[in-house]
């Protein structure tokens, strides 16, 4: 196994009840890089993302065969601690979903759940996370206000800050800009570029330009199959598979 890989996925098959959503997926997610998962709606890219931190567990009738190895360990093994996994693999959702509490409490939520109570330590964590999420300057005077009072773009950066506050190794992003306007989207994209120094990022996106702009590697999915996975510039300049070429040139999707 490649030592640079954070996740190693081997022959992953996933069923929702009778319906198979992923077919024999095998890929490696490289460390400290941005990996984009692209493909048309229903191609399984979000499903794959959610199987990395086992959020699919929450869906009734979801059944998984094969392996997802995080830092060499099979996360679907019976003895694996899923809570531990999720503290190391953070997630940002499609729709900004801050908790109905203050900005401070939103960011401090994860650390508090880990049992950190010291106010000074929490304040430090919150400040650092908000700084890293490029939100601190905008909200430093109103940390006690509700997270829901922020704009959509700010809410999404708050959610990123909330994930960063856990000091994870990986951040999974499920179409994080699809609900945002172009300016807010640009800010998040800049942020992702900054974050990749410290974190491995896996991002699902609908937007091929976005994948081309921000990712180092791109995986193209179609109907539950991984069609092609390579360096982003190769995927977009000289795709090996005809279906990939058809998709990125806009012939379907």
């Amino acid at each position: 196994m490649n030592a640079r890989a954070v996740f190693q996925i081997n022959d992953l098959n996933l069923h929702y009840g009778e319906k198979q959503a992923l077919f024999d997926i095998s890929m490696e997610i490289p460390r400290n890089q941005v990996t984009a998962l692209i493909g048309p709606s229903g191609c399984g890219k979000s499903t794959l993302l959610r199987s990395l931190n086992r959020m699919n567990d929450l869906i009734d009738g979801c059944h998984i065969d094969g392996q997802v190895r995080y830092e060499e360990e099979d996360v679907y093994a019976k003895t694996y601690d899923v809570i531990e996994l999720r503290t190391k693999v953070g997630m940002v959702f499609q729709k900004p979903n801050p908790f109905p509490m203050s900005i401070f409490d939103n960011v401090a939520y994860g650390p508090r759940c880990q049992g950190i109570k010291d106010k000074k330590v929490l304040a430090d964590i919150v400040k650092k996370a908000l700084e890293n999420a490029a939100l601190y300057d905008e909200v430093k005077d109103r940390l006690k206000e509700s997270g829901n009072a922020l704009s959509g773009g700010q809410q999404q950066r708050l959610c990123i800050a909330r994930a960063i506050a856990m000091n994870p190794d990986v951040i999974l992003m499920d179409e994080p800009t699809s609900a945002l306007d172009p300016i807010a989207t640009a800010k998040i994209e800049d942020l992702i570029q900054d974050l990749k120094k410290d974190y491995t990022i896996v991002i699902v996106t609908h937007n091929m330009q976005q994948a081309a702009r921000i990712s180092d590697n791109t995986a193209f999915f179609l109907m539950g199959e991984l069609v092609e996975f390579d360096k982003t510039d190769l995927i977009f300049s000289q795709p090996r598979d005809q279906r990939t070429e058809d998709y990125i040139t806009g012939r379907f999707g």
Partner: peptide
């Protein structure tokens, strides 16, 4: 209570009990 709150909490490594008491019941 939107399911997004529960998912966000679980994705942050909170346990089911923490999610229920700190997020869901609070909301």
């Amino acid at each position: 209570i939107p399911d997004e709150y529960r998912q966000a909490s679980l994705a942050l490594g909170a346990t089911k009990t923490q999610t229920t008491f700190r997020v869901v019941l609070k909301a």
